[in-house]
Amino acid sequence: MAIELLPEFFLFLGIDLFIALALLTCVMEHFNRLISYLYEAAAVFGYVNMFMSREFIASFGEYMRFSYSFLYLALALANVIGINVYLLVSKKSWGTAKVFASCVTFPTVLISTFFFSLYCKDTSYVLTAALMSSAMILGIGIAFLVVPEKLKEKLERR
């Protein structure tokens, strides 16, 4: 008998992604050592999230559990893509960016899409996922627009 995926599977996937990012950023030369610990903290946050989900499983509906689990996975994916963009744009390290895209970014996006397609039982889940992804892209866009000039210059100088 096939076991149905729980919404928390996306949380679990997100935790794995953050852990992979923590280890990768630790190994790579391009990042400050604090970044790795930040990703590790994000993974711990995911674990706490999962723990809370289990404790309140009776009061949280499946739709709500899916929403925060998917949001966490989307955040992890955004970080993977963000690191790829950072390597490409800020560090101008084309080779590393290409390797990162083919070995990390593309497989993670593919795996996440695969499990999302397995889980999706309803159109409402697809719409929620689309809404959250759009909101996140919008948020990132706004953050880039309002970034202070001094920080912009600093980034460009790098």
Binding site: I3, L6, L11, V44, G46, Y47, M50, R54
Partner: peptide
């Protein structure tokens, strides 16, 4: 530690 703890929780939920 985090991965094994998360997997244990997920398994318990299943």
């Amino acid at each position: 530690l985090i991965v094994s703890a998360s997997a244990a929780i997920y398994y318990a939920m299943l």
